[in-house]
Nucleic acid binder design. Structure first.
Length: 597
RNA sequence: GGCCCCAUGGUGUAGCGGUCUAACAUGCCACCCUGUCACGGUGGAGAUCGGGGGUUCGAAUCCCCCUGGGGUCGCCA
């Protein structure tokens, strides 16, 4: 090794010993004669001192050192002179008095600061990823992620889970997300698909008697990107035989609690994790992944709205819709401009409109309530309305009258928007919750068929199996989600383990018998051979690391992420390939693409 | 595909129709400086304001189009 010690490891215990360090120049403070340099390696930062009386070699060399040069220094660890200790850094009690320095490599002026956490154009952080990752704060995200994954492995190992790899080149199944396809050279005209998740393989591992499987699995979905979505991402995928809902939820809760104690001992969370029924989540928060760090819950005022003379309410209710709203504290003073901004957000999200009601003085309905609603609502109705929202003077009530689906969506957006403006989400709180009671199926209006809410392998509740034929909408699935602070961290279910039931569900989803055989024949055959009852879950590793690290995007916890157009700016991928490569794969590009590339 | 936001020296920002031959901080270069730690001091180089078109006597500033980026809805079994 070119170094005997690491920068961050040095302490009082090393005083008096000679050390050789190697690292990057983090910052320099050059006094002309005497010069200080903060030397950084992956363990931390230590101050090294160049004193012309002690340091050998040409003095010009000392003063020619620049940020991010890679240097090796030999020196003595000494206590800092009294009064010059730096309590701000862990190694601040000591310093290294340099006797010899060698430049191992120089470095051009970096395109952005490495020694400061100034936000910088994300393009640059992606293109020069190796420099961005040098930032101590970003480096610490990688350390945190490593410790998290290690914690998961240690925990599951103690719980007698086996880590088993499954193939990356698998079979395309057009349902669900779009697949990434890989052409086969050996089998012309045929394609592998990259796994959207190892779902079927892990269930087959249960059939294979592994009983407890997990994998830190890379998954691929060719869909549009978001702050918390990349085309390739990592899941903690696990499956457990002879288990039901409670076993999985208990396991996951214990694991998350353990991770919290290791990674975020400072943070607050409730235990046991609250459980939320899907229907309640939708009616109270408008979403199945609510941020529970703040209230702003949705109230239904359909009964009151029906008594008013407000036409919009009546038409919404008559066409089977709902009238619901949220009460935002302290925003009654919103200007016309601010209110119209909120209305724009509501209409942009698909609502036909948004009724705002500024509660200036709740005791004075004449001019204490500012709203288009005022003249359509009687005294009693206004009183019950304010009571329903528990409105105080100074509050702003936002009401949407629309289909249930649109109302939920819009109020969810407004709820998060207002909570953000009012800084209601405490970053030191982790509001975990399990969401249960999802319907098994979801009616797809466009395709006019049933879709799986989760996936087709989710077991229906035993009491609801008979409804599969008569009333599929009412069938409840044995599906559960783990949510935290408005993010879906994971999703799982008790699986179907009997061929007949699995086949019934496939049929219900609109697959013909021949399609079932072609796509899932191997799978149905597998579960026929004594599949044990089993259940599992998959948790988003990137999202977990993002939350633990207090980041707002998973790109901050992924070493080499892609931008919103799924482009890797460092590698410049995807890229065109040589026509010889295409030939070998028996592929050709469409004419218009050839012209463009 | 829709909607919203952004684009000014290397980096981060200011600028709100003329006073912009574009300001500030930091970084960079040179010189000075032996106890700093976001070291300090003096001097200097560095952007024609993402690209194109338009409005105007006059555009970094207003409008349109394009490009790039971010957020989001759709999409994500």
């Amino acid at each position: 090794m070119l170094k005997s010690h690491s920068c961050g490891d040095l302490s009082n215990a090393h005083i008096g010993s000679q050390v050789t360090l190697a690292g990057w120049i983090h910052r320099r403070r050059d006094h002309g004669g005497l010069a200080f340099i903060d030397l950084r390696d992956s363990t931390g930062i230590v101050q090294v001192v160049f004193d012309p009386q002690h340091t050998r070699g040409p003095e010009e060399l000392t003063h020619s050192l620049r940020n991010e040069y890679v240097v090796q220094v030999v020196g003595d660890v000494v206590a800092r002179p009294a009064g010059t200790e730096n309590p701000k850094i862990p190694t601040g009690a000591i310093e290294v008095s340099v006797t010899k320095v060698e430049v191992l490599n120089d470095c051009p002026t970096p395109p952005f600061y490495i020694n400061e956490d100034v936000e910088v154009d994300e393009n640059l952080t992606l293109k020069y990823r190796y420099l961005y990752l040098r930032r101590p704060s970003v480096h610490s995200n990688m350390v945190l992620r490593h410790r998290m994954v290690k914690g998961i492995r240690d925990f599951l190992d103690r719980e007698r889970f086996l880590e088993i790899e499954t193939p990356i080149l698998i079979k395309s199944t057009p349902e669900g997300a779009r697949d990434y396809l890989v052409p086969s050279r050996v089998n012309p005209g045929k394609f592998y698909a990259l796994p959207q998740s190892p779902q079927q393989l892990k269930q087959i591992l249960m059939v294979a008697g592994m009983e407890r499987y997990f994998q830190i699995a890379r998954c691929f979905r060719d869909e549009d990107l978001r702050a918390d979505r990349q085309p390739e991402f990592t899941q903690l995928d696990l499956e457990m035989s002879f288990a039901d809902e409670e076993d999985i939820l208990d396991l996951i809760e214990r694991m998350m609690v353990e991770l919290m104690s290791v990674l975020r001992p400072d943070a607050k969370f409730s235990q046991p994790f609250p459980r939320l029924h899907y229907a309640d989540a939708m009616s109270m928060y408008g979403t199945d992944k609510p941020d529970l760090r703040y209230g702003l819950t949705i109230s239904d005022i359909g009964d009151i709205a029906g008594q008013t003379s407000f036409g919009i309410f009546h038409s919404a209710l008559e066409s089977g819709g709902v009238v619901r709203g949220i009460c935002v504290p302290g925003c009654a003073g919103y200007s016309k401009h601010q209110l119209s901004d909120l209305i724009n957000r509501a209409t942009a999200a698909g609502a036909r409109g948004l009724v705002t009601l500024s509660v200036v003085d709740a005791d004075n309905f004449e001019d204490g309530i500012k709203s288009v609603l005022a003249k359509h609502v009687g005294f009693d109705q206004m009183r019950s309305l304010l009571a329903r929202f528990e409105a105080q003077d100074g509050d702003l009530i936002l009401i949407v009258a629309d289909t249930e689906q649109t109302t939920c969506k819009v109020l969810d957006i407004l709820r998060r928007e207002m909570a953000g403006r009012l800084h209601m989400a405490d970053s030191n709180i982790f509001s975990y919750a399990f969401v249960l009671g999802f319907p098994l199926l979801d009616w797809n209006h466009e395709a006019k068929r049933w879709d799986s809410m989760h996936h087709p392998f989710t077991a229906p509740r035993a009491d609801d199996v008979t409804l599969l034929d008569s009333d599929p909408a009412r069938v409840r699935g044995r599906h559960y989600d783990l949510v935290c602070n408005g993010h879906e961290l994971g999703s799982g279910s008790v699986r179907i383990h009997q061929r007949q039931l699995q086949q019934t569900v496939f049929s219900l989803l609109g697959y013909s018998d021949s399609a079932i055989e072609e796509r899932f024949g191997y799978f149905l055959q597998a579960i026929e051979y004594g599949a044990p009852p089993h259940a599992g879950i998959a948790l988003g590793i990137d999202r977990m690391a993002m939350l633990f690290g207090g980041q707002e995007s998973i790109r901050e916890v992924i070493a080499f992420p892609k931008n919103q157009n799924a482009v890797d700016l460092m590698l410049d991928s995807p890229s065109a390939v040589d026509s010889a490569q295409l030939d070998e794969l028996n592929l050709s590009l469409k004419r218009q693409l050839i012209d463009r590339t």
